Computed example of a mutant assay.
Amino acid sequence: MIDLRSDTVTRPNEAMRQAMYQAEVGDDVYGDDPTVNALQALICELTGKEAALFLPTGTQANLVALLTHCQRGDEYIVGQKAHNYMYEAGGAAVLGSIQPQPLDMADDGSLPLDKVAAAIKIDDIHFARTRLLSLENTHSGKVLPLEYLKKAFEFTREKGLALHIDGARIMNAAVALDVPLSEITRYCDTLTLCLSKGLGAPVGSLLVGSKEYIHRANRWRKMTGGGMRQSGILAAAGIYALENNVQRLKEDHDNAKWLEQQLRGIGLEIAVPGAQTNILYVRQSAEQAAKLGPWMREHGVIISSGPLTRIITHINISRQDLQKVVDLWQRFLTNQA
């Protein structure tokens, strides 16, 4: 099956599996797993941060990040459609008693800083205490501009806030901008990075920040059930991904841009801004969307069909696969005419 639902469906290749098989392991809860420690050291080198923590999932990494930044009764300012507000089951509010203050995002995925400034609460017993600005990079495939990140970081210094980046696909942003990851991460206090999306590892995310911050985050990881034992087997996949699968993300981006051109060519409407990275959105009627999904699956393609259909290219999708998708979509449109 050609699976375009997400880059979370990627599968480890043989070389990655061999790295996992050969991984030296210890007990990571005691800090004794050498492969986990090597992975954490590697991401620190790439981001320019002091310390890192390996967690099972991106949702848990973002939750631990928020729990470490904020106490009960604090709030974080976040995008209305940001993943760690909309798609993580309200974990910060439910488990941490942390109030989200969602704001509408700009078309480029950023949070306008004038709106952020207006949302910061004054020091008054009636209000939650504003502690954190949380950004997402990339957001729906959109890359936050470096100039915006610089302004946002300076803004949070002036306002006494911390700045966290949900960087599940932040490597895609670095590749799209053609800059080292550290050029982006210099403009945040903490970030999360997912290893199991475009980077192709089977599982795992990283939380990165200062030594003092990660020391506190480690307690929250344990409390929320993320303290794994001989997790070097999983960390080895992450090391392989960071050493071998970063620059190849450009192939995914190029494939998404090619697909955009082909789908436009057969008359489909592509949502603005098109494919900046590996994510593309196609607009279609609800009636057509309801028919497209089952029809594509019958012909070997899994797609999350809806009025705004998201398509994600990844390591297990080739240009030949995408040509088949275009041909099938054109057949579908012909049949509907």
Rank of each mutant, 00 (worst) to 15 (best):
S210M: 10
E136W: 00
E136D: 09
T192I: 07
I184C: 13
N137F: 05
Y148W: 09
Y148A: 07
L132Y: 00
F155C: 00
E183F: 08
I165L: 15
G141S: 12
E158S: 04
R131D: 00
L163F: 04
I165Y: 06
L163Y: 05
S196L: 11
D178T: 08
G160V: 00
L144M: 05
E158R: 06
G204D: 00
L177G: 15
I125N: 08
A176D: 14
R131H: 00
G204Q: 02
L144N: 01
Y148G: 10
G160I: 03
G198I: 15
E158V: 03
L206E: 01
H164N: 04
I184E: 03
L149H: 11
G200D: 01
A174W: 02
E154R: 12
A201I: 03
L177E: 02
P202Q: 01
E147K: 14
A176Q: 11
S182T: 14
T156I: 14
S210Q: 01
K159M: 03
R157G: 07
E158H: 13
E183C: 12
M171S: 12
G141A: 15
G204S: 12
I184L: 15
V175K: 01
A168L: 07
L193W: 09
L133C: 08
L133E: 00
T185V: 10
A128M: 02
A176N: 05
L132I: 04
K142R: 14
A152T: 11
S210T: 10
H164I: 03
R129M: 03
F155H: 04
E154N: 02
R129D: 07
E136Q: 15
F127R: 08
V208G: 04
T138N: 06
D178I: 05
K197D: 10
V175H: 01
H164K: 13
H139L: 14
S182L: 11
G141H: 06
K150N: 07
L149W: 13
A152Q: 08
S196D: 15
G167L: 00
K151H: 09
C194M: 08
G167F: 02
M171G: 09
R131N: 02
L199C: 08
A173Y: 02
G204P: 07
A176E: 06
K142F: 08
L144C: 04
T156P: 12
H126D: 11
A168D: 05
G198Y: 02
I125S: 12
V179L: 14
A128F: 11
K150P: 12
L133A: 00
L144G: 00
A174R: 03
N137A: 13
G204M: 04
I170Q: 00
G209T: 02
A168K: 03
P145N: 02
V175T: 06
V175A: 03
I184V: 09
T138P: 14
L207H: 13
G160M: 07
F153M: 04
F155P: 07
P180L: 01
L195E: 01
E136N: 12
